[in-house]
Computed example of a mutant assay.
Amino acid sequence: MKIRSLVTVAGLALAVALAGCTGGSLRMFSSEYGSMRDAGYRLPSIPISKVPRQYHRQIVRYDTKEKPGTIIVDTSEKHLYFVMPEGKAMRYGIGVGREGFEWSGVARIAAKREWPVWTPPPAMIKRQPELAKYAKGMPPGLNNALGARALYLHNRSGDTGYRLHGTPEWASIGRAMSSGCIRLINQDIIDLYDRAEVGAKVIVK
């Protein structure tokens, strides 16, 4: 019985160790979703207990050959990774494009904007005529579709039309609901914005 117990304990220890090497959380930031003031706006607190823990901001172990500062978007797992030194990454929960609006590829951050103006593209206005009132731009604010921050993605052909951006719709995190852009909780996009540099590589897969 003692031998079996030792084997069981050893097995559990090994499982925990392996979990740590394959993405186990090293630090959670579940307390970072409270109300905050930013550029004259008061962001409301997020009922983070209603968001699955896997989508809370956290530092995880992450094995990649990409250099620190690279952003890797895993659309199937609904996670965005900001690569850090020493085999770590800051991981954020995301919302992704709904069926028919998915995309993948490599881009660069061409620009960063705080409290950006959102201008729906003509194709979106055609699908949703009620957005025509924003054809010249939706002013910044708590209800703006791009949220508190936006990172604009370009590739060799120019502007992809896709953004990494905030959203007031926290319940959409972990779901496929957007028109292709990658959305984060506003508190998370502010954190990512402060880390990411213009020119950084973005891989969407």
Rank of each mutant, 00 (worst) to 15 (best):
K2G: 13
K2M: 09
I3T: 13
S5G: 03
S5V: 00
L6F: 01
A10D: 05
G11M: 01
L12E: 09
A13Q: 03
A15R: 02
V16D: 05
A17V: 14
L18P: 01
A19P: 08
G20W: 14
C21L: 14
C21G: 13
T22H: 08
G23Q: 05
G24C: 08
G24S: 09
S25Q: 12
S25Y: 05
S25K: 08
R27T: 14
R27W: 13
S30G: 15
A39R: 15
G40D: 10
Y41I: 08
L43F: 08
P44G: 12
S45N: 15
I48V: 14
V51T: 11
V51D: 11
R53W: 00
R53Q: 09
I59G: 10
V60M: 11
R61F: 10
K67S: 13
P68I: 12
T70D: 12
I72R: 09
K78F: 15
L80H: 03
F82P: 02
F82A: 06
P85I: 11
G87V: 14
K88E: 09
M90S: 12
R91D: 11
I94E: 03
G97F: 01
E99A: 00
G100M: 10
S104D: 01
S104K: 06
S104L: 02
I109V: 08
K112E: 02
K112M: 01
E114F: 13
P116Y: 07
P116W: 02
P122I: 07
P122Q: 09
A123C: 06
M124L: 15
I125C: 05
K126E: 13
K126V: 14
K126N: 11
R127T: 01
Q128H: 12
P129Y: 04
K133P: 03
K133D: 04
Y134E: 04
A135V: 07
G137M: 04
M138W: 07
P140F: 09
L142H: 12
N143P: 09
N144G: 07
L146H: 00
L146C: 04
L146Y: 04
L146I: 06
G147Y: 04
G147Q: 06
G147T: 01
A148Q: 07
L151W: 02
L153E: 05
S157R: 09
S157L: 10
D159N: 12
T160E: 03
T160N: 06
Y162C: 00
H165S: 00
E169T: 13
W170M: 14
W170T: 14
I173P: 08
C181V: 03
I182G: 04
I185A: 06
I190M: 14
I190G: 11
D191Q: 06
L192M: 04
D194M: 05
D194H: 03
E197D: 11
E197C: 09
V198H: 07
G199H: 05
A200D: 10
K201A: 03
I203Y: 11
K205C: 09
K205M: 11
